[in-house]
Design a protein around this nucleic acid. Structure first.
Length: 212
DNA sequence: AAGTGATCCAACCGCAGAGGA
DNA sequence: TTCCTCTGCGGTTGGATCACT
């Protein structure tokens, strides 16, 4: 018998939310796979984590995206490509799922970016190859620097937030960035670098936003 | 009012990486 | 060193809702 079968799918009920919230209040986050065992909730740990991160967490902001948020997302997408978790990490109160959805349903349209054809006969793929496939078609890079930037981004893809050696961050002079805002359009490679991401982390939302 | 297509968004899926045994 | 579990990520799906005819 496959253990997955014991888990429920689909939308969460209020009762399920309540149970999950109660567990997290007492035990904190992490150890998601313990939740169904401890609480009797018919949800896999993965589903619980997602529900918390995208909906129940008090840090999640609901409601429409402001113009400022949209602008920031567009700019960050220019720099980072489809690295939604990184983008969301710099948009306070928004989750990667929210940002991704908002991009795909609103901003993509707003910017006039064509949606890629859906993959035929397959689900998700490895991140590296998927990024490659979904963004490498020249016809997909029709509009704005957003899409063309992703070429740069994907070359950097093997690096994540924590992958940069500490020394490498030195080639970004944080203080210089703080004092004189970066020249975004001409410096994509650097701006997509882990060092720049670290820089963004060190500054509050409004300061980082103003720098753009 | 009913039917239908479009849109939105919560949730799922498969995969990779980290870390511990 | 290898294996296993857990966590996180990004793409995709599907149900609910909206807009239009």
């Amino acid at each position: 018998m496959k253990p997955e079968n014991q888990y429920k799918k689909g939308l969460w009920t209020e009762e399920e939310d309540r149970i999950l919230l109660q567990y997290i209040t007492v035990e904190g986050t992490g150890k998601w796979n313990r939740i169904p065992k401890v609480t009797g909730l018919k949800r896999c740990g993965k589903s619980c984590r997602l529900r918390w991160l995208n909906y129940l967490s008090p840090t999640v902001k609901r409601g429409d995206f402001s113009e400022q948020e949209e602008d920031l997302i567009i700019r960050l997408h220019n720099l980072l490509g489809n690295r939604w978790s990184l983008i969301a990490g710099r948009v306070p109160g928004r989750t990667d799922n929210q940002v991704k959805n908002h991009w795909n349903s609103h901003l993509r349209k707003k910017l006039g970016i064509q949606k890629q054809n859906r993959k035929i006969g397959g689900s998700s793929k490895t991140r590296a190859t998927l990024t490659e496939e979904t963004h490498s078609s020249p016809s997909d890079n029709l509009h704005s620097g957003a899409e063309s930037m992703e070429v740069v981004t994907k070359e950097k893809r093997p690096l994540t937030d924590n992958e940069a050696p500490h020394g490498e961050a030195q080639w970004i002079n944080y203080k210089h960035f703080a004092e004189s805002p970066p020249s975004i359009p001409d410096d994509h490679a650097i701006l997509a670098s882990p060092g720049f991401l670290d820089f963004l982390d060190g500054y509050p939302f409004d300061v980082a936003w103003e720098s753009f």
